[in-house]
Design a binder for these strands. Structure first.
Lengths: 242, 242
DNA sequence: ACCACTAAATGAATGTCATTCATTTATTAG
DNA sequence: CTAATAAATGAATGACATTCATTTAGTGGT
């Protein structure tokens, strides 16, 4: 790699020779470390994941920027790219971390029904706090997410033990998961999402139904819908066991 | 609004007096029209929606940029902001347009079960092509989306006529919708999403289940899961009618 | 001890966006 | 005829993610 041949896209005029070497100031990690060190690296995937979760918990997913991540880790933004290939990659790390928080302890313990209930509610609750990850999961090859894969293994095992025929296990899990992801969005919906406002006059049946729910519902609407759908799925899928 | 007091944040040096008035060239809409005209406006919500759909159909949601929209409409990007307040607003227009494509014709015609089946499959199919809108819908107050609201009205009416008690109608619809949105993502998932790759050894039950599905499944996996879950929901929810 | 190798960091671009703002213009209402 | 107004312009702005040439400091081999 000869330094001679100027890279195709590089600007001709301004040379990159460190003239003035930055007016001093102390840019991020100037104190803690002079430069890279093969072992005992400041940055690694675990640290990046932790920092990302920290940022998200503070300001939500809008607060998760590569620059913010770098600042929190006391490093230049470009340094992150030695450890992850893209921001999507960071999201993936976060997703896999969260998968480990989902409660699969019911499988192998009580009934299949109870195990699914525990799993589904906890799965929904975890991702309701992280809905921006849902589009990521939906397309994420499981190979890249070991914890997620581990969750699938436990759940699959539970379905098999409960008497599900092989060929229906994946479809059943996918159906439940689809419902769970969709329901995670509901949790974040504003309370007045179904308020028809000025259009209420032209939608009497819907408006009445919304009204009744608001008056009679004890649970949060999102919880009531989730319970209803989940019990239907458990009953319907469970009926197809061998 | 006196032009005297300089706006607080405006740059001091460079005045914005049209000196040179652009070297000529013909920028976008130079020919078709000199400038704004109260009526017979070039731009309106319908036109913006149509152009947005055009862009999306060409290059997907990555292709939908305010600049691209403006180019297609032969207008400066900033002109769009006279008609929509933000890009989110454009997405909303698109969403509501799509809601009108969902098939609700079954309600009022055949059985409740068949009506739900028709509605659910068509709803899923429409939004499978537009998954980036799902996060938008989830938070969108229905007031701002008349077509979407109209869909809810028809569906609510169908549930009521089928004997559903008032207080369970909205929850039932939300449960179905959650499942539909989650399932829309599945449709777009890569075929090898469940390929455990190098981790396959540590996840025998899951891997076997995936294998079996691949060998024995006739339908697309996403369709099999959707059918399974939808039938379970229809059976489970239908059982709760009065 | 030296030295070549390499992982890891820097900081200065780049390019893509959405969005804002002061102006200008053409139509329309009074 | 004139004042008001809706609608357009184009030039900034400010976030971003991402790339690249370069520098630095440990490490392993001799």
């Amino acid at each position: 790699m000869p330094a001679a041949s100027a890279a195709p896209g590089s600007p001709a005029g301004t040379k990159r020779t460190r003239d003035a070497a930055a007016p001093s100031g102390n840019t991020p990690a100037t104190i803690r470390r002079r430069a890279g060190r093969p072992s005992s690296a400041v940055l690694d995937k675990a640290g990046i994941t932790a920092a990302a979760l920290d940022l998200i918990s503070r300001n939500g997913y809008d607060g998760l920027t590569m620059a913010g991540l770098a600042r929190l880790l006391d490093v230049a933004p470009s340094a992150l790219y030695n450890h992850v290939t893209s921001k999507q990659d960071v999201l993936l790390l976060v997703e896999d971390h969260l998968a480990a928080l989902v409660d699969v302890s019911g499988f192998g313990a009580g009934s299949w029904e109870d195990a699914v209930r525990t799993w589904a509610w906890s799965y929904r609750d975890v991702f309701a706090q992280h809905t921006p990850l849902i589009p990521v999961i939906a397309v994420l090859p499981v190979t890249d997410a070991p914890q997620t894969l581990a969750m699938y293994e436990t759940v699959s095992r539970g379905f098999l033990d409960a008497g599900f025929p092989q060929e229906r296990i994946v479809s059943s899990i996918v159906a439940l998961e689809s419902f769970i992801f969709g329901s995670a969005y509901d949790v974040t919906a504003p309370a007045d999402i179904f308020d028809a406002g000025s259009m209420a006059g032209s939608t009497p049946h819907f408006t009445a139904a919304v009204q009744t729910l608001a008056e009679q519902g004890h649970e949060r609407p999102a919880d009531a819908a989730f319970r209803l759908g989940l019990e239907a799925l458990i009953a319907g899928l469970g009926a197809l066991r061998g």
